[in-house]
Design a protein around this nucleic acid. Structure first.
Lengths: 211, 211
DNA sequence: AAAAGTACTAAACAGTGTTTATTATATTAC
DNA sequence: GTAATATAATAAACACTGTTTAGTACTTTT
């Protein structure tokens, strides 16, 4: 059995070698620089071999997306110790934005690529981690809304609003639009804009302590 | 003089023929389907000829971006007759979102492509129309903030916040993320999320009439 | 030893953006 | 009118891209 097992292990090994090479290229050359042929060249196999381990390039991108979600989830979990849910939301927002700006290519694969979203029936499975993250934000929103006694505020809508706000900010920053609006103040603009979003919702209510 | 003039006119004619073909391909096959060779094929010239009229593909994309801005600006101007600046902001937001969703490829060229943004010194010139649009939103925000007597609210920050909110919504919608969150309710989610943004800022103040 | 299965690849297919050398045509100069 | 020049267009090549197919070399099973 050890014979077949070793083979199996070697197959998994090569599969992760492909992914490692893909990550390395992604980090250095960006999403545009990532190609099947470069991966093949890096691991010293022919391009055709890649297709024995992955259906196509999208399958590799999908794996990279999951890696990105793991990194982001870890970064956000770091902030979960904050007791005040409003301050926690702010910290989560900043961490999310920080991740997006420091990991441009991963961010684009996770949130801007259409590739992992093609088959509607697969969506809930394929974007599993994205859904889980949204659920986590929604629960934090519920906490914050309850703590501040804000009536008639739907937690899902609030989560979507905050998400789209930071998502918009990250995308504007990544495509240099903020730099055009106010050169040299991209980071400040981002933080202030996030505060406008949070303050406009939470500042007129009970809990108003800021970090 | 008519000889040289006719030549000149024919050059301009072919240049706009190239752009027309590019627009046609963009509408039917999307940004990904747009290629120099397809443009050349459509106007029945060789690919190399394109390069006599445009520096590269980015130059063509830039022209398409400007066309997109003209369409969007027209759509937004349509809403400028609304007297109440808060309701006007809402209508502008909806029109912006509508444009983004109905003109996916143009939207991406205008707001998500990095191409027109490469040279920092050129930025203010190259994204001239984008800046003008932002200025228009900023002024409307100023009006709304004044009308509602909201103290300490920076109009530029508010404009950025609202812009990033709708930009985020459009991008999430275009990449099918909203469909995953709540299948079949993309449009409703968008409108409700926009209302959360506007209401959280303006609803606790004087002017609260809604359309 | 023969048959079956596995791992891998060379080569091709159909694309992409872009550049270079060349040709055909039209304009200008003599 | 002929020769020199300038213009317009292109064929062909370069260096890439993702993907498929047919075939080879090697290992395992029968």
């Amino acid at each position: 059995m050890s014979l077949a097992d070793r083979k199996e292990r070697e197959k998994i090994k090569l599969k992760s070698k492909i992914l490692d090479a893909a990550k390395k290229i992604l980090l250095v050359q960006g999403e545009r620089g990532l190609s099947i042929r470069k991966i093949a060249g890096m691991i010293e196999y022919s391009p055709a071999t890649i297709y024995l381990y992955f259906k196509d390039k999208d399958a590799i991108m999908h794996e990279l997306m999951n890696t990105g979600f793991t990194i982001l989830t870890n970064a956000l979990t770091q902030e979960s110790s904050e007791a005040n849910p409003v301050i926690r939301l702010r910290k989560l927002g900043l961490a999310y934005i920080h991740f997006g700006i420091k990991n441009k290519d991963w961010y684009n694969i996770m949130f801007n690529s259409e590739k992992p979203m093609q088959h509607i029936e697969k969506c809930s499975v394929e974007w599993d981690q994205g859904m889980r993250l949204f659920e986590y934000i929604r629960l934090t929103c519920r906490e914050a809304v309850d703590a501040c006694h804000i009536p008639d505020m739907d937690d899902e809508l609030l989560a979507l609003h905050l998400w789209s706000s930071v998502h918009g900010l990250v995308n504007l920053a990544l495509t240099d639009r903020l730099e055009i609006i106010k050169p040299g103040h991209t980071q400040a603009l981002i933080e202030q804009s996030l505060d406008v979003a949070l303050d406009s919702i939470f500042l007129n209510h009970s809990s108003r302590s800021q970090s």
